[in-house]
Design a protein around this nucleic acid. Structure first.
Lengths: 212, 212
DNA sequence: CACTCTCCATACGCCACAGTATGGAAAAGG
DNA sequence: CCTTTTCCATACTGTGGCGTATGGAGAGTG
């Protein structure tokens, strides 16, 4: 696995420690646009898109708006950049998973298991799903979902389904994933590490993935 | 079916037509708290919870805040009342569907088919799911999901599953429903009336519901 | 050393919305 | 008919965020 929760979003440069009592003063003395993007993605994962506000974000980073508007023209452009960055990362994740496993059944199982790894990526995705009405988010969501479902449908085709059935089954499978994310946001799902979760996952796999 | 998109939210009393150029001036000359609640639910369905703001809502109803703060102590209490009202309505829907169909398989199929009817109820639910992080919404979501999943698990039990398996399958089935709502919000789902949708629905039923 | 360019702090104006205060019109009750 | 109660309009304060203007410190460069 090339990415996990730790390395997903490289932890970035921090600020120059001026008068902020945080213990994380290190690295560079100046911020880059990428730093703002990564912090925005963290906020999205933690509190959703609506929480991505310039001034609170700046406070969170121990800095002021002055910096932000030097790197970005507006809040909107930050979102745009952050979303692009995240989407590219997600696309890399997907093709990476394609390369590492050969069998279609393994790839499908890995798709579900991936939920418990890559925490931040899925938290961001979950938050984005919650903002599907946002004009900047919707196209990203569409592309990501389409990519993933195509990936899944391909696997089902390899398992012997015809194209129409594979498409339906891919949509169904992906819906299960989306529904799981929703239930997870409601904390109505067993802990990812519990054995109850493992039992559920086995049930899902047994129901959705033909025994190859 | 006791409720459909038209009668779900009874269209309520409107305002006294003072200087607002709308064509819907009728009925009572004074508003009730219930009118505010219903309008709030419509806004939730259309634009999500965040769009439920006092002044915009008042403008939408052709009235001013003065009215609102006579009926409610705060925006928060409006949300509280509206959510309670919706939850009660949804609970009635559920038990109504329990009464009208006898076989468990029919009840499960009807659960999915119900999505295309009861438009407003599901639009509200979909919008609430998108705001699962909201402290007032979360408990409502929990209760509603729990009720529905219990209902579904009961049907699967009647179809011969043991309790654990029925619970897992109910969670899985409900996840499919939730995922469908998500894809619907992204407009990545065939139109509810299309034959493509019917084909997908057949696939879902064939995959998830044991042939009794 | 002076000069420029990079990055950030500070202060400002603007707007949207929450909630309050108060008065007034119209219906209800006597 | 007069009074009380119900319901709403208007005007106000306060808060929080967006975007702008401007100046200043620090590093890099001649």
């Amino acid at each position: 696995m090339a990415y996990d929760a730790e390395t997903e979003l490289r932890s970035g440069r921090k600020k120059p420690t001026q008068n902020v009592p945080q213990a994380i003063s290190n690295k560079r003395s100046t911020l880059s646009a990428a730093d703002w993007e990564q912090e925005a993605l963290r906020v999205i994962a933690e509190q959703g898109i609506a929480a991505v506000a310039v001034e609170p974000l700046a406070r969170r980073m121990g800095i002021t708006k002055g910096s932000f508007y030097w790197h970005f023209s507006s809040r909107e452009s930050l979102l745009e950049q952050a979303l692009i960055s995240w989407e590219e990362h997600d696309a890399r994740n997907l093709s990476a998973s394609l390369g590492e496993l050969s069998g279609p059944r393994d790839r499908l199982i890995s798709f579900f298991r991936r939920v418990s790894r890559e925490g931040l990526t899925h938290e961001v995705y979950s938050a984005l799903c919650a903002a599907a009405d946002h004009p900047q988010v919707l196209p990203v969501l569409d592309r990501v979902a389409a990519r993933r479902m195509k990936h899944i449908a391909q696997a089902f085709t390899e398992l012997g389904m015809d194209e129409v059935e594979a498409d339906h089954h891919a949509r169904l499978t992906y819906s299960v994933y989306l529904g799981f994310l929703q239930l997870q946001r409601q904390r109505q799902v067993p802990a990812l590490s519990s054995q109850n979760f493992e039992a559920y996952l086995d049930h899902v796999i047994a129901t959705l993935i033909p025994k190859g």
